[in-house]
Design a protein around this nucleic acid. Structure first.
Length: 936
RNA sequence: GCCCAAAUGGCGUAAUGGGUAGACGCGCUGGACUCAAAAUCCAGUGGUCAUUGUGACCGUGCGGGUUCGAAUCCCGCUUUGGGCACCA
């Protein structure tokens, strides 16, 4: 009887949906388990074969957990705000919500077709007002909070205000600068605007001046990863640095907790390492250098290597460092001024190329121990935002200092032995013995580090500090398709929209582009003013700065909505708050999170941050959002590129490209190729009407593309669609095939060659339950041999699933199927447990067979069979007999045979004599129940 | 430059508290069934040499080492992929 997968899969998908069997219950006596996939961005291209990799894996685990009697929450939703829809809107004028809706419909259809056991009743979509209402709410909570470093948690801003009213900021500790101290009396006398200015330095969502990537041609601000070599990724238009006031989130307040939290979560080491690096905590010392001839003036520097203090030969300030005005000598003032001014104009990338540029201030500082005169320079290579914006340069042991010293002819003093020739190359390894270092001489670098810190602190020349590379996150985007920031301004002072009035809906605009004056798209809205008394949105024309005020025109970044969605799934129907504590205290946090490595620093850090913030206010009970993290590997595919002579309509076949002409390369969709690397020119022209008149330089009658193996991605035009596969072979086959491709976390090149094997396996499995034309199983007792096959498989599967080793579980199922087919096993007592084992991997065929075995329940909830040892232990051990580690023959002995007897028997064996060939036996090693090695 | 991961047949891969390398699948070769095809089944399949059967030697990126025994452990490289990068 034929395996009619289309009909079978259709039937069970319908039944699962009809009976809502994957709906998770918020009130259950069963233990909870929360399995989550990183939710997809619904792009116009639909799912490609790389996406399901993680979804199938998490689904297998979900189904396994259900069968183990867990109450499993396995939801899905869509991260729908974002660039591509907006870009499409700019081009076509169609509202992005329409595009998004269509795309989501397509994704849902594709996901459902895979038989993934999601609880669809909890679906969320970040661009849905019912959802982004709470994203905006969270923003307001951040805005109305500050971080108390003594208590190590966020607190309401009102509490800070009352502290200020009672004691000013004289006592309070906050991570942001506290330099301008004020008393309670002073605070109370400040005008509102001054108060707010101060509060901005404490709020967790705050406004500050930052640099953005501005692309005038696209009329948008771009994220760093959308800028490649100073040009926009899309279209290659120039990008400029522009300074503007932006909303930021004070994520750095949580740096230590984000670092500490990594200790207790089960994540891949590489991701934890990436986050540690990203946070970049470094311990060191802030050290004072007093300026000569300028009493009371000192430069405070940061260094993690105080043991090199005797190697200092100059000091460098960042161009933004304020001190230069005070210390620069008259003769140098013009030169310094020019340098500082020009440096301000340079963006980060240009600064990089100016790494060795600099200017002498004419000032000198005194070395804290030797009193030697040390010159002070200003250079682009020192960043104002890290440490103190000033460094002590030790050219012998720091490469950049070395380059600078060489250029300006400054001294190079070797203080750590071990380098070859520090005049030629800096020795920046922290190993060696201190030399030319007074009281540190003879100590190892490690010992000297301790000693130098002690001595410096003792003498009051500096103090221990901690620095982070981690930066606060810029939060505003000058775009349309995102959550509006719920803020209005009274004479420039920001105020939050009342929580009850959320969501602040995206306004209607005529175009989705930035205005000509460079205002964000929301600046086009005609009704975008806040009538404070009546608490409603009114026409901009009514703005009077008394009762009606302008609204913020920036929107939120993609990560705003995607950093807390895992909490919303716990109670999607709650209209009173984003999370209700009853359900969040039941579901707690995500037990297993599956997704791509590319989110290792962005999404995963923002989510951890927001989760911690919400914990500070009691909305969640756990410190970390994701207990265990699993990365599915990328799927690669050959992409194709064609080359065009710049500025022309002439394309050149890959073999004909010469270096003389300036050329440009474009991706072409791999579906426009034929016979491997050849471009189907007719198809290409049809697909790209703009090139219908283009010329093609061909070689031997054909036009060849350049090929490259890259991550499968819409932007690289190398995506393969799963639709064709499940159309031809079914979802179960696709599931088996994708899991059989190799270990889950490994990068793999997509191939469809193996798919036939997966399909053949399922057909063979199906035949186990059939005899000629009909379903057939026997009720007789199974043989020992059959039981052994079954229980070995149970053992393997039960070991493999918790290890996410699905490729080997499938191979175990294949082995069992082959063996049972061979001995023509038809026993229900064998086949029934076998279907249960297959069910998490290929759920449709398993449900069908389960049903045909006369069961009325769903196989999804049937417990996995248990392995019974008696069936798998052998009485006889087949010992491999090796000579010097090389296998020669095998011998059988009953289990537990004494070694002496084994040795005697092995040495007596005629084969042994043959392999000895008169040589003497040096040693005989017998490993009980395993192996025998004879050393000759 | 720094950090992380990986390297095994024609291909995807399996075997790591050191113990029979190549399970399972694809592909390929030959055969059975068929008028034929598809489907299915059976046999073979790391390399070299030799062979009637049997067999011998070499083989897990490269070079060393530890061990009775190494794909697995240690030291030194090479290559590929990923992340970070004026962070003092």
């Amino acid at each position: 009887m034929e395996y009619t997968f289309r009909e079978i899969e259709n039937r069970w998908q319908k039944r699962w949906e009809l009976y809502k069997i994957f709906k998770a219950d918020n009130h259950s006596k069963k233990p909870k388990y929360y399995v989550l996939d990183m939710f997809p961005y619904p792009s116009g291209a639909g799912l490609h074969v790389g996406h399901p990799l993680g979804y199938i894996a998490s689904d297998i685990y979900t189904r396994y957990k259900r069968s183990e009697n867990y109450n499993v929450l396995h939801p899905i939703g869509f991260d729908a705000f974002g660039l591509p829809s907006e870009q499409y809107a700019i081009q076509t004028g169609q509202h992005p919500s329409l595009t998004t809706k269509v795309n989501i419909q397509r994704y849902k259809k594709q996901l459902k077709r895979l038989g993934l056991s999601f609880d669809w009743s909890r679906e969320v979509c970040t661009s849905d007002p019912d959802y982004y209402r709470w994203t905006q709410w969270i923003f307001l909570q951040l805005y109305n909070s500050w971080y108390d470093i003594s208590l190590k948690r966020a607190r309401p801003i009102n509490e800070l205000i009352s502290i200020f009213e009672k004691e000013g900021n004289l006592v309070i500790r906050s991570p942001e600068e506290n330099r301008n101290k004020f008393t309670a009396k002073e605070w109370n006398s400040f005008p509102l605007s001054r108060k707010e200015e101060i509060l901005q330095k404490y709020r967790l969502a705050f406004r500050s001046e930052t640099t953005v990537n501005w692309c005038p041609h696209l009329g948008t601000v771009l994220a760093n990863d959308e800028v490649i070599e100073g040009k926009s990724e899309r279209g290659g238009y120039p990008v400029y640095q522009k300074k503007t006031i932006q909303w930021s989130i004070r994520i750095t307040s949580y740096a230590d907790r984000l670092l500490q939290g990594l200790e207790n979560i089960d994540w891949p080491e590489s991701i934890k390492e990436a986050q540690k690096q990203w946070i970049g905590k470094s311990f060191g010392l802030n050290l004072f250098f007093f300026v000569i001839d300028n009493p009371g003036t000192y430069i405070e520097i940061f260094t993690p290597r105080p043991e090199t203090i005797f190697g200092v030969s100059f000091i460098v300030l960042a161009p933004e460092h304020e001190l230069w005005e005070k210390i620069t000598i008259k003769k140098q003032i013009n030169e310094v001024k020019t340098y500082v001014e020009e440096s301000k104009k340079r963006n980060d990338r240009e600064r990089l190329t100016h790494a060795t540029s600099g200017v002498f201030t004419g000032a000198y500082v005194a070395h804290p121990f030797t009193n030697e005169r040390i010159p002070v320079y200003i250079s682009d290579y020192v960043l104002n935002s890290y440490g103190t914006g000033a460094i002590m340069a030790v050219p012998a042991h720091n490469t950049r200092d070395h380059m600078f010293a060489k250029k300006y002819g400054l001294k190079i003093i070797e203080v750590i032995s071990g380098g070859k020739d520090v005049y030629k190359k800096a020795y920046d390894i922290k190993k060696g013995e201190c030399i030319h270092s007074d009281f540190l001489n003879g100590l190892s670098a490690e010992e000297a580090l301790k000693k130098s810190i002690e001595k410096i602190e003792e003498k009051g020349l500096g103090y221990r500090t901690v620095n982070y590379r981690f930066r606060n996150a810029v939060f505003s985007r000058q775009r349309y398709w995102g959550e509006p920031i719920p803020i209005y301004y009274k004479k420039g002072v920001p105020f939050g929209i009342p929580e009850k009035k959320l969501p602040l809906l995206l306004p209607i605009v005529d175009k989705y582009m930035t205005t000509q004056e460079g205002k964000p798209p929301l600046g086009r809205a005609t009704h975008w003013a806040w009538y404070e008394k009546k608490q409603k949105i009114v026409s901009n024309k009514l703005i009077d700065e008394k009762t009606i005020f302008p609204l913020e025109t920036s929107t939120m970044p993609g990560w705003a909505g995607s950093s807390w969605y895992f909490l919303r799934y716990m109670n999607t129907d709650n209209d009173n708050s984003p999370i209700d504590t009853t359900s969040s205290s039941y579901w707690k946090n995500v037990d297993l999170y599956v997704g791509g490595k590319e989110h290792s620093t962005g999404h995963l850090i923002y989510s951890r941050f927001l989760h911690k913030f919400l914990k500070d206010f009691g909305w969640v009970s756990t410190e970390e959002p994701f207990k265990k993290l699993l990365n599915q590997g990328m799927v690669l595919e050959h992409s194709a590129m064609i080359t065009r002579i710049e500025g022309t309509q002439r394309f050149i076949s890959s073999g004909l490209i010469r270096n003389q002409e300036k050329t440009q390369q474009f991706y072409v969709d791999i579906h426009l190729l034929k016979n491997g690397d050849e471009l189907d020119i007719d198809k290409f022209k049809k697909y790209h009407p703009e090139f219908s008149k283009a010329e093609f330089s061909i070689e031997s009658g054909k036009f060849f593309c350049k090929r490259k193996i890259e991550k499968m991605s819409k932007s690289k035009f190398n995506v393969r669609n799963p639709d064709d596969i499940y159309e031809k072979y079914g979802a179960d086959t696709l599931r088996i095939h994708e899991m059989f491709l190799g270990p889950l976390n490994q990068t793999k090149l997509w191939n469809t060659r193996g798919i036939k094997g997966a399909h053949q396996f399922l057909k063979k499995f199906w035949r186990l339950f059939h005899s000629r034309e009909s379903f057939y199983v026997e009720e007789s007792s199974p043989s020992i041999k059959e039981l052994k096959i079954l229980h070995c498989t149970i053992k393997k599967i039960r070991e493999d699933i918790p290890n996410f080793s699905f490729n080997t579980s499938i191979s175990a199922l294949m082995i069992a199927t082959n063996k049972l087919s061979e001995i023509q096993c038809k026993s229900r007592k064998i086949l029934e447990p076998l279907v249960i084992l297959l069910a998490p991997f290929a759920p449709h065929i398993s449900e069908e067979l389960w049903h045909r075995l006369n069961h009325k329940d769903f196989i999804c909830f049937v417990p996995m069979p248990k392995c019974e040892k008696q069936y798998i232990t052998d009485n006889i051990i087949e010992y491999p007999i090796t000579f010097n580690g090389k296998l020669r023959f095998k011998m059988n002995f009953p289990i537990g045979t004494p070694q002496k007897f084994i040795k005697k028997e092995v040495l007596r064996h005629p084969e042994t004599k043959k392999y000895l060939q008169g040589k003497k036996i040096k040693n005989t090693i017998i490993i009980q129940n395993k192996i025998i090695n004879i050393v000759v």
